[in-house]
Design a protein around this nucleic acid. Sequence first.
DNA 1: TGACAATACGTGTTATCACATCTATCTTAC
DNA 2: GTAAGATAGATGTGATAACACGTATTGTCA
Lengths: 158, 158
Amino acid sequence: MPGQLAAEIKQTKPFTTLEEEAVVSLARTAALQDHAGQELMAGFGITQTQYNVLRILRGAGTAGLGRNQIGERMINRVPDVTRLLDRMEAVGLVERERGDDDRRCVTARITREGLKVLTRIDQPLHEFLKARVSHLGPEKLRTLIDLLADLRTGYSVD
Amino acid sequence: MPGQLAAEIKQTKPFTTLEEEAVVSLARTAALQDHAGQELMAGFGITQTQYNVLRILRGAGTAGLGRNQIGERMINRVPDVTRLLDRMEAVGLVERERGDDDRRCVTARITREGLKVLTRIDQPLHEFLKARVSHLGPEKLRTLIDLLADLRTGYSVD
DNA sequence: TGACAATACGTGTTATCACATCTATCTTAC
DNA sequence: GTAAGATAGATGTGATAACACGTATTGTCA
């Protein structure tokens, strides 16, 4: 058995090191998952990045969050939150307000419309995750989560 | 311990399902790894995508490969291989030649210059992988690779 | 043999990413 | 109280991604 992954990407030689195979496996698995996620979100007219912002802002509630705070909470680094919020504001998913006490700060909040979109997504997303991931079973999922956390230790976010 | 990942992305609530945590873990781990890989490759004047093409074309040797064949072998789906190759040809990393028997086919090959770049990357990349991944140890790496393969089963590439 | 589908690429276009730089506002130290 | 630095965000720009559509060539079959 020369490796499932090597066959997936039509690679004739097996991987030379376990480290290389792990990193390529990770990249490929994440890419497949991400692509499927993009399709799911596209059905609701948003991107995964936008979904993440909405989820973060729902968590923040009426207090809202600033640009940098949103950036810190994103799953993957997004270097241009300003224009991401611009686009979301333009379609009515979020609203922004400049602070009164500190006029540098702009607080973003999710709108009623944004909340409605999130609510519509919640159940399909739950089913999507079940369908794509739950076949591993709880123990394997726990192991996977822990191994990925292991892998990240020592990484800096930026 | 409410979860390492939740703290990383400053999420106040723990994850509601194991499936969600697994997918977010996967996305975040891959994003961190990818970002570091981009930086590594940027030091050699190419992107990770271009590195992949070079690696694929080195594997193909003098026979070369067509646009679609390259696309199939990429780790992540790239919908515009033509212009990716355009850019790489412009900087002399690959060369292309239209087929004689089937004039629809364009075969891409790695140039001597492209091979030189790959050769310069090989050792640093090996060290990079060692540094970022090998602390898991062979058994955990094997488990991770297998779990990721498990996760991908049932996925379609496109 | 000539229409029709399939194949292999190429091109147009828009949106987004990613980096660097800029502006406005606040804080701090003198 | 004012200049220097820190902070929060905005903007300019070029490269890339993603999707749709267009073109050239080949295979197939009535």
